[in-house]
């Protein structure tokens, strides 16, 4: 087309030249912006590796399995924060996953159509509440409640039961690993729910109606038709929630108790990677201390990157199979 216009005009018109310039300008500009996203990621990784080198050099591999965290003797190990991060996230998933599935089933199968939108919005608003609000609520409302009523009950109920009695060993502090896990389970609800709801809605009505036609109950339809059909998507949603729980900072910082030790009891204070960084980074003096905290950040970033990456791949696969 361009050549045709040029041929008629005899020489390239100024308008055409301007169009050409703007065209290549926007193309290059947008391309650079897209590449910025990649630069961001590599920048984060490189700077974290660079910052954590002193600690990794000083402690070597033992950094990952040493429990001690002593700023005075400058002996640091990541075992306690890693343990805390994994355990709180595990608790969050154990509680949050079934509830999210329940809500998604309620919204897609049980709820009257009029209530569908308001309930979905309300659950999504949970994701909008800033993490620090969960923290302050957890510290001043949830923790005292747990300390007074729930934790004594748990200690009493599991007293003498092998295994469980060490998990729920006293005293009831209120704050601790279990409380952090509970708060996290509320925080991951909206993320898992919105994805499960979305993938539940991709199930062809024909499949569900055939099952209902055979006489299946709603539960049986969910269990044997909806869940198998959406398996990949649901797992993707759970992984996404897990990624959120692993990296969550402020809410956990308020209620975890910031104790650098691995305790068998879920009621005892602990710490997570993100809580340690949030609590100690500005106060950390000395290269080794700062570097150890950055190394914690690196570990966290790698863990969440793998989990979130896997989640996205699963959701992608779900989307592709939907197109078939």
């Amino acid at each position: 087309m361009n050549t045709a216009v040029t041929a008629v005009a005899g020489n390239p018109s100024p308008t055409l030249a301007r169009h050409k310039l703007m065209e290549s300008l926007l193309r290059i500009l947008t391309r650079c912006a897209a590449i910025t996203v990649l630069i961001m990621l590599s920048g984060v990784i490189i700077s974290l590796i660079d910052g954590s080198l002193p600690a990794l050099k000083a402690f070597g591999f033992s950094f990952f399995h040493t429990e001690s965290w002593n700023p005075v003797t400058e002996k640091f190990g990541a075992a306690a924060p890693i343990y805390g991060t994994l355990v709180t996230s595990l608790i969050a998933m154990l509680i949050g996953f079934p509830i999210s599935i329940g809500i998604a089933v309620f919204i897609t199968e049980l709820c009257p159509p009029k209530l569908k939108q308001p309930i979905s919005t309300a659950i999504e608003l949970l994701a909008g509440i800033p993490s620090i609000i969960y923290g302050i609520w957890g510290l001043f409302v949830l923790a005292p409640l747990l300390q007074k009523y729930v934790q004594p009950l748990l200690i009493k109920a599991f007293d003498g039961v092998p295994g469980l009695s060490t998990l729920f060993a006293g005293p009831p502090y209120g704050i601790g690993v279990l409380t952090a896990g509970l708060i996290l389970s509320i925080m991951v609800l909206p993320f898992i729910t919105s994805i499960t709801r979305d993938v539940f809605e991709t199930v062809p009505p024909m499949l569900k109606e055939s099952a209902y036609g055979l006489g299946c109950t709603t539960w049986e339809v969910v269990r044997h038709v909806v869940l198998p059909f959406t398996k990949t998507g649901v797992i993707g949603g759970v992984m996404l929630g897990l990624g959120r729980a692993l990296g969550e900072t402020m809410a956990v910082t308020f209620v975890i108790g910031n104790a650098h030790r691995i305790s068998h009891s879920l009621l005892a204070p602990g710490t997570t990677i993100s809580a340690s960084i949030a609590n100690e980074f500005t106060e950390a003096d000395g290269t080794l201390y700062t570097s150890s905290l950055i190394a914690l950040g690196l570990i966290l970033f790698i863990i969440t990157f793998i989990v979130l990456g896997a989640a996205r791949l699963m959701l992608l696969r779900m989307k592709q199979s939907e197109g078939r």
Binding site: L38, S47, L240, G247, A278, F281, G297, L308
Partner: peptide, 21 residues
């Protein structure tokens, strides 16, 4: 893909990154 991962990446790590740079 990278953007979707960054969307949910822990924000405290971003703080560390900016501290470093």
């Amino acid at each position: 893909f990278i953007n979707d991962v960054l969307l949910s990446a822990p924000s405290i790590v971003v703080g560390l990154f900016v501290y470093e740079i």
